[in-house]
Design a protein around this nucleic acid. Structure first.
Lengths: 342, 342
DNA sequence: AACACAAATGCAATCGATTGCAAAGTAAAA
DNA sequence: TTTTACTTTGCAATCGATTGCATTTGTGTT
């Protein structure tokens, strides 16, 4: 009727539950012969370990909690995939929740994960998040946290970010190499560090090349399809039109390209475009979009590696590091001046 | 030092732990005044509920296990997102693993999820899976299972599938309406039901229209980018070339389009194309790809709804149903005969 | 004041596995 | 045969919350 427990096995073999427990956990202190007998009986009796009981007793769940703004987004699902991939090999399960960029939900999720005693937390914070009490909860109880992409700067923890600055620098320099003189930038909300960095890389490249920084060429918005269209509209209503645009994501790069096509301008002939993140569509649209590659999957693996190390080593006094994942410029059609190519 | 428990609260207030437990769970049997005192003290003492203990005692984890072949894939991450979305509102957490289409991994994951006593399991089985012992485990212990997309036909459980047949029928009919006479089909591995159904819908449409079914126009492969190119190559080496292709996914639709472009044929002018699944890129490539929409997110929500209902109602003897999610033809440029349009 | 009955609280067992320490068993050395 | 030193095994407490049942407290009625 009810589930077989180690006590049932013990009773059947006339031994103690402790021995059964040890045998099933391959504790070498148990003689091989009894161990074998126990395992055989366990199998016969259809024994299924109850991790709940074990976790409760040992205060360890072998579970990593993950919070992302939205699961169904290429970058995040790549990271999650990477985390799960490594975690699995190390015997950890992952519990995933999405905050939908709502602080309230993020907060509740954090408490639930804590109540479930996850061994560690990997997260990318939501756009609304400016208070971190829900995360301090973990820090206080020495439960390791690893941030990725959207990090909380004031919390002491390992952080994994993308080299936004370097990527943007490279992207902008590439545009300059292709002959662009008036490069615009469509950027994201500046309360997020990543967009600050992308802006900074853009500025740096201009500065290095001795190009003037022009306020009217820089627009910030939420980087949706629509935002991109509106931004492009604004840029090309100027009398002094740009000859290239560095977009802070591929989505706006795409809608910009579509807009330009509609007003009769050609990419890359008339305007050069570079995006950011290497979305799956970027390779296959026409023209294909030059972009900066985000190593989502390996970020996930790295995050898992860091957190598991902390969990296993119980490194509490560790020096926390901020790991910057390399970015890579992928040159595609949207930024290739044909003349220069040949 | 150590965590505050309900006993600590009880001791401090000189009452019993049972009362504390009941108060914190809003049991109405506890008077409002004590309840208020208890909650206040709990807050002051920084009490954090230990779900491990509660779950252990109640044998209920409020957790749903999910197994998908690959998290980082648009369709699956949409479904996961939908599951999480609804589950969250019902107080359930989700634990997600990817099988990578490996039977061994799927098997191990199932056992781990069982050991962790998830309340229910939602999964899409891997390509290698032909034995279901690891799932019978759940069935035997009355733990509800819901399959989606790739279902195990011999296990009794709710199943949620996409209307592959109807979608394919509609897609093919659409091509016929647009004037196609020789319609090819690039399909997936026939050991998966979904591809059988897509093939069947294609046949049905031809039959209804009185068009001849021609073996040389039907190709089956694994539906990768490369497979699509190879298939297209084969189709257009025939003397009797197709004037339209219905592809079983958008990926092959895309690579077919690219191949045709390379050999100087125009889509849709020379060849009409329809894909399946509505990948994010399909809308934005040139020409945009007509396709059949997969309602991933709502499938996820539906799956969550079904499983939570079973969990809460303890419906063991329920009649299991197979729910077919509606598909929708999205007509884009790749299948629009301009002349017919105007 | 006595009683009945309802409301509020407490007692104590329980869930299943783990683990420090004690005890028993075994083999080798003296 | 006794002693010593391992090897194996068992005892019993423990983790924190829940819950059926018993008990106490409180309220109202006659």
């Amino acid at each position: 009727m009810s589930e077989t427990t180690i006590h049932d096995i013990a009773k059947k073999l006339n031994i103690s539950a402790s021995t059964v427990s040890r045998a099933l956990n391959d504790n070498p202190i148990i003689s091989k012969s009894t161990s074998k007998r126990i395992k055989k009986t366990a199998l016969e009796m259809g024994y299924r370990p109850n991790s709940l009981a074990a976790n409760f007793r040992t205060k360890r769940t072998n579970t990593i909690g993950i919070i992302v703004p939205l699961i169904n987004r290429h970058f995040f699902s790549s990271v999650i995939s990477g985390i799960e991939d490594l975690a699995y090999t190390q015997g950890f399960a992952v519990t995933i929740s999405q905050s939908n960029d709502s602080f309230e939900k993020e907060n509740k999720i954090a408490h639930t994960l804590f109540a479930n005693r996850v061994d560690g937390l990997i997260l990318s914070i939501g756009m609304e998040t400016i208070k971190y009490d829900h995360l301090k909860l973990f820090a206080e109880r020495k439960i390791p946290i690893v941030f990725f992409d959207r990090i909380a700067e004031t919390i002491e923890a390992h952080k994994i970010v993308v080299d936004d600055f370097g990527g943007s620098l490279r992207a902008t320099e590439h545009l300059i190499e292709q002959g662009a003189k008036r490069i615009a930038h469509i950027g994201g909300p500046l309360n997020l560090k990543i967009y600050q960095n992308r802006l900074a890389g853009y500025f740096k490249a201009l500065e290095r090349a001795g190009l003037e920084i022009c306020d009217s060429l820089v627009i910030h918005n939420s980087l949706t399809r629509k935002d991109g269209t509106i931004a492009a509209q604004k840029l090309f209503q100027n009398e002094n039109k740009p000859d290239a645009i560095f977009c802070a994501n591929d989505t706006t790069a795409l809608s910009t390209i579509i807009y330009l096509k509609n007003i009769g301008l050609k990419v890359p002939d008339d305007v050069l475009i570079v995006g950011f993140s290497n979305e799956p569509f970027s390779e296959v649209v026409t023209p294909s979009i030059s972009t900066i590659k985000h190593p989502g999957f390996s970020m996930g693996r790295k995050a898992a590696e860091l957190i598991i190390h902390q969990i296993n080593e119980k490194v509490t006094r560790a020096v926390f590091e901020t790991i910057t994942m390399p970015t890579e410029l992928i040159i595609r059609d949207s930024s290739k001046r044909i003349k220069i190519e040949k």
